[in-house]
Design a protein around this nucleic acid. Structure first.
Lengths: 129, 129
DNA sequence: ATGGACCTTCCAGTGCAGGGGAAGGTCAAG
DNA sequence: CTTGACCTTCCCCTGCACTGGAAGGTCCAT
């Protein structure tokens, strides 16, 4: 498969595929005599894995590590589980702070709808924030 | 006040203050004969406002708009309320997708603890993701 | 007069995941 | 034989909020 084919089959762009190759997520493919990249369709599975990893909130660098372990012939399951655990802790932190932010915003906006604008003090920028 | 004084009083860095000036969040201050920035202590209020805006999840560009309105002599309250509303919608979106991500991660990790690593299929990278 | 703490400007880089576009090569159809 | 779609490498740009560092000027105490 040429790069454009693979890209559209995977629902991504040729730019992204070249970028993944550069980052070590995709192995350098064979080339046609003209120098075109010539991919094994099995790369679709790899791209799917990358997408699922991203959907789980992993960075490309983390996904690359997993792929490297797998390419080295080992089962990356333990490492993947650790990454998922870390990510879960992380997401729970983000959820906590985002919830706090939502509460702050809600109460600021409630004040903003019940108070008068012209009560802003002289050295305040705005009483709403 | 010199820049270092203002920075430590505001709990930030001189780099940040120069950056804020460049971005239009702080007005260009007077200069001493030697060319040092000489700030009015009232800028502490302005820096506090900036921090509260950031705590509400506004970008520096949005805060700069609010300051510009206020510097133009108008009460920015209406604009601020709109920004807070927008931000609230945005935060609720983020909360929804982050919650979905947490659920995904939780169930992936549950599978990861109950299944055997060696059940990975031949063309799978890892059955956990 | 000299050391150190402070200040100035300017340039460049960080992390993340790509996107934009130039300059040129290749291939199949009309 | 030319057009258009595709491909190649190359380098720079995006957003966000800074941060680091170089090269040089200033101020105060010793």
């Amino acid at each position: 498969m040429r790069i454009g084919e693979l890209a559209s089959a995977a629902g991504t762009s040729t730019k992204t595929l070249r970028f993944y190759e550069e980052q070590g997520l995709l192995p350098a493919p064979d080339r046609t005599p003209a120098g075109y990249r010539d991919y094994d369709p099995i790369m679709l599975d790899r791209l799917d894995f990358i997408r699922r990893g991203q959907a789980a909130g992993l960075t490309l660098a983390q996904i690359q590590q997993v792929l490297e372990i797998r390419d080295g012939g080992q089962a990356p399951c333990g490492h993947v589980r650790d990454l998922l655990d870390q990510r879960l802790v992380n997401v729970e932190d983000q959820l906590r702070s985002l919830t706090a932010l939502r509460d702050t915003l809600t109460s600021l906006r409630d004040e903003a709808t019940t108070l008068h604008p012209d009560t802003c003090g002289p050295h305040q920028v705005c009483r709403y924030v």
